[in-house]
Amino acid sequence: MLLHIRRSVVLSLIFLVVLGLVYPLAGTGISQLLFTHQAEGSLTPDGSTLIGQAWTGPKWFQGRPDGNVVTDGPHHVVVSGTEQLGPRSKTLEEAVAKEAKRLKEEGIVPTQDLVTYSGSLVDPDITPADAYAQVKSIARARGLPVNEVRHLVATHIHTRQLGFLGQDYVIVLELNEALARLH
């Protein structure tokens, strides 16, 4: 028993160093060297292409209705997902109806992803269909030709990886940054 305990303590400490420090630190070092941009969070001047932002108003392409990534101050930390509404939740029904109503008011025909929450609540992406659904209202709000906005969406579609993994998507931040550059 005593021998078991001694061995357990020694081995735990060794593992603590090897697996808890050497492994992640070596990984961090190499990652920072090879994939600096990714390791740091795929940041752009306006955010991260991997973290959804809150886009409000008719001038921007809107993402999933996750919404809670906005913070009031720098130290108010907001936690990621998951949203917790079951498949027969009245709350969910109400939220969906409310979101659809809001979109309609902005002149957007609601699509599935635009009214349902994501898993992480920081989903940075929408499907091309979701983006196309917003083209008309954005063109109107920004006074741009519809075709130009549509073309913008088309050129920002990320096709599914390796041709079969996942689905086509548009990164909302990337699209909006391009939209901002249109002027």
Partner: peptide, 23 residues
Amino acid sequence: NPAVAAAHVVPQPQGNTEGKEVR
């Protein structure tokens, strides 16, 4: 998704997207 369907606002061609990521 039954709850989403109950709102009668969008068709759900992709199936149940509630709680799932686009990518």
